[in-house]
C-alpha cells in the first residue's frame, strides 16, 4: 500500500481528485442551469418563439461541469487510473494532483452557481426585450472567466505533477 496521508495512499488521492472535480463542477452547473432553465420555462409558456435565445442562456452555466469533467478525465488518463494497480502513484504525487485540482473544484462549483444567477437575470431580460439575448449571454459569460482561469491553472498543475 505504501505511505498514506489521512488514510489515503497516492493512488486514492488521485481518484479522489478526479471524482471531486467532476462532482463539484457538475453541482455548479446543475444548480446554475436549473435556476436559469426554470425561469426560461416560465417565459416560454408566454412566448414560445424565444426558445433559441433562452436555450443558449440556460446552457451557459453548463461549461463548469465540462471543465470539471475535463480535469477528471485528464487525471484518469495521465496517471493511468484505468489500468489501476495504483502502485505507480506515490503519495506526494497523489496529494499534488489533489491540490492541483482544487482550483477547478472550488471555482467551478462557485462560478457555476453564480453564473446561473446572471443567466436567470438574463432570461428575465429576454422576456422583456427579445432582442437582448446576446447581451444577456455576454453578461453571463463574464462570470465564467474565473472558471476558465481555474481550469488553466489546474491543467498546468496536473501536468506539472505528471512530469515532476
Amino acid at each position: 500500500m505504501g505511505e498514506t496521508f489521512l488514510g489515503f495512499n497516492g493512488y486514492q488521492w488521485a481518484v479522489f481528485a478526479a471524482s471531486l472535480s467532476v462532482i463539484f463542477g457538475g453541482i455548479g452547473s446543475c444548480v446554475g442551469i436549473a435556476s436559469a432553465a426554470k425561469m426560461s420555462a416560465g417565459v416560454l409558456a408566454e412566448d414560445p418563439d424565444k426558445f433559441g435565445g433562452l436555450l443558449v442562456l440556460s446552457i451557459l452555466p453548463g461549461t463548469q461541469g465540462i471543465y470539471g469533467f475535463i480535469t477528471g478525465l485528464l487525471v484518469v488518463v495521465f496517471f493511468g487510473l484505468l489500468e489501476g494497480d495504483g502502485k505507480s502513484i506515490v503519495l506526494a504525487q497523489g496529494v499534488r494532483i489533489f491540490l492541483g485540482c482544487l482550483p477547478v473544484m472550488i471555482m467551478c462549483l462557485v462560478s457555476g452557481i453564480f453564473q446561473g444567477m446572471v443567466s436567470t437575470a438574463g432570461v428575465s431580460l429576454v422576456a422583456k426585450r427579445g432582442e437582448a439575448a446576446g447581451q444577456g449571454m455576454i453578461l453571463s459569460a463574464l462570470v465564467e472567466t474565473y472558471a476558465v482561469l481555474s481550469l488553466v491553472v489546474s491543467l498546468f498543475l496536473i501536468m506539472a505533477a505528471q512530469s515532476g
Partner: peptide, 18 residues
C-alpha cells in the same frame, strides 16, 4: 483574459478525446 482561448481550445479537444 485571453488564456480562455487556450482553455476553450483544449476543452474541445479533450471532450472529443473522451
Amino acid at each position: 483574459s485571453y488564456s480562455r482561448l487556450m482553455a476553450l481550445g483544449l476543452a474541445t479537444f479533450l471532450i472529443g478525446w473522451g
